[in-house]
Simulated assay, not measured.
Amino acid sequence: MAGKVYLVGAGPGDPDLLTVRAMRLLQSAEVIVHDRLVSPEIMNLVPPTARRISVGKSAGFHTVPQDGINALLVKLAVEGHTVIRLKGGDPLIFGRGSEEAGELAAAGISYTYVPGITAAQGAASSTGVPLTHRGLATGVRYVTGHRARDAVLDLDWDSLADPDTTLVVYMGAANMAEIAARLIAAGLRVDLPVLAVAHATTPRETRMLSNLTQIGADLARTPMEAPVLFVIGRVAGLYETAALPLPRELRGPHLRVVGHG
């Protein structure tokens, strides 16, 4: 009898931000197939009896290509296992969860989505910078800044260059200089604030406050360790007055204010 696959969002990294359902599944896990972006604090919750399979990805390096992950999930389920496919953030927001679900459905494997708090919400909560704010942003858009190998970074720049909308860029550190230049060319002002947050909600969280014209140079001078999320828009200008300090257990060289002021 075939097993079942749970496509589970691990949230932005802080174990306290897991859903109750995700926590319950982790604690009873038989097999966990997990991404690189799942924090070590969350992986520490996995029982020692569970089999762990890492399929982590980083820019330009995939330990297991997506087709291999899809095939692995099907294989494990066909063998009768209950599988937790654990992803950073939410499986349906730049998590490729629907691609994996499609392969499972084609193979006749039962699956269930378990949502997670996405990185943008986690970064907003830990920094104190809202994604929407009356008079500053009437909406928010999530986009990927990832470029597949030598592909062109093909986004609707004119649509994205909306001064009344907060733009959140996932997986964009390697291409942020180009992204910023494209947004400026499409009409956004050069001094529009940009807040970069790495490892949001975890003890490794770092922050950089910059602006569109300088963010590329700032990142080149002071690189940030992935995963990095970028909040672009007038709301990022609230950081200097509304930022939440990091709790005592998270203190360290956490804030670099560069290229802005």
Rank of each mutant, 00 (worst) to 15 (best):
M1F: 01
G3T: 02
D16C: 03
D16S: 13
D16M: 01
A22W: 03
L26R: 07
H34R: 01
P40G: 04
I42D: 09
P47Q: 00
P48L: 07
T49W: 06
R52N: 09
G68Y: 00
N70A: 06
L72I: 07
L73G: 01
L73K: 03
V74M: 03
L76H: 07
E79K: 11
G88V: 01
G89E: 00
G89N: 05
R96T: 07
G97T: 01
E100R: 09
E100D: 07
E103C: 14
E103R: 14
L104K: 03
I109T: 12
I117S: 05
Q121R: 10
G122Y: 14
G122T: 05
S125Q: 13
S126D: 10
S126T: 15
H133A: 08
G139K: 13
Y142V: 06
R147H: 07
R147G: 13
A148C: 14
D150E: 14
D156T: 10
W157G: 01
D158Q: 15
L160T: 15
A161N: 09
N175P: 12
E178V: 12
L183H: 10
A185R: 13
A186H: 13
L188S: 05
L188F: 03
R189T: 14
A196W: 00
T202F: 03
T202H: 06
P203H: 02
M208S: 08
L209G: 07
T213E: 15
T213Q: 15
D218R: 12
P223Q: 10
M224F: 10
P227G: 06
V228D: 00
I232W: 09
A236Q: 06
G237R: 00
G237D: 11
L244D: 05
P247R: 12
R248Y: 14
L250E: 09
L250V: 08
P253S: 11
H254F: 13
R256Y: 08
R256W: 12
G259P: 07
